[in-house]
Amino acid sequence: MFGSFVEHLGRCVYTGVYEPGHATADEHGFRGDVAELTKELGVTLVRYPGGNFVSNYVWEDGVGPVEDRKPFLDLAWRTVEPNVVGTDEFLQYCEREGLEPMMAVNLGTRGVAEAVALLEYCNGEAGTKWADMRIANGREEPYGVKLWCLGNEMDGPWQIGHKDAHEYGKARGRGRQGDEGDRPQH
């Protein structure tokens, strides 16, 4: 119930939770004063990385060696995202601070395949492409992220990749239940 939300928007991440070089920053670049206040606030869970941002986020661009990552123009908030903080940085921050992460997947510009890849990157055991990418990026143990948001505000015309309810519902992947799915009664 006492969760919060960190989106790549404005200064929530950069100069918010994360600011290497800040007097209170830890060795990972996260601000200690903000972490302290977050603890005092009593936050137990954090949703990430958006918000409208997630609907054009390419999570693969935010993992791996930081020096190899390229910035991209986030069209939701019209801001250049440097890709310095990504999935690993966020999930490891949550672990250090005792926060439960709630991850959102991009169902705006992307689909089920990329969502499953991210899930496998986060939770998969060694021996598959995406889990092995995580391991190659220095993280052996799966993160075990339990909560997953299937896109963000997909009903909103402002949302990148906005869908109507039928398109969105049908994006569930396999195992759709025939007539209930094809002919919802309302």
Partner: peptide, 12 residues
């Protein structure tokens, strides 16, 4: 689940 949006700086 409840999430106060957001945590830092942005409506925070």
């Amino acid at each position: 689940i409840g999430c106060l949006a957001q945590l830092v700086n942005v409506i925070a």
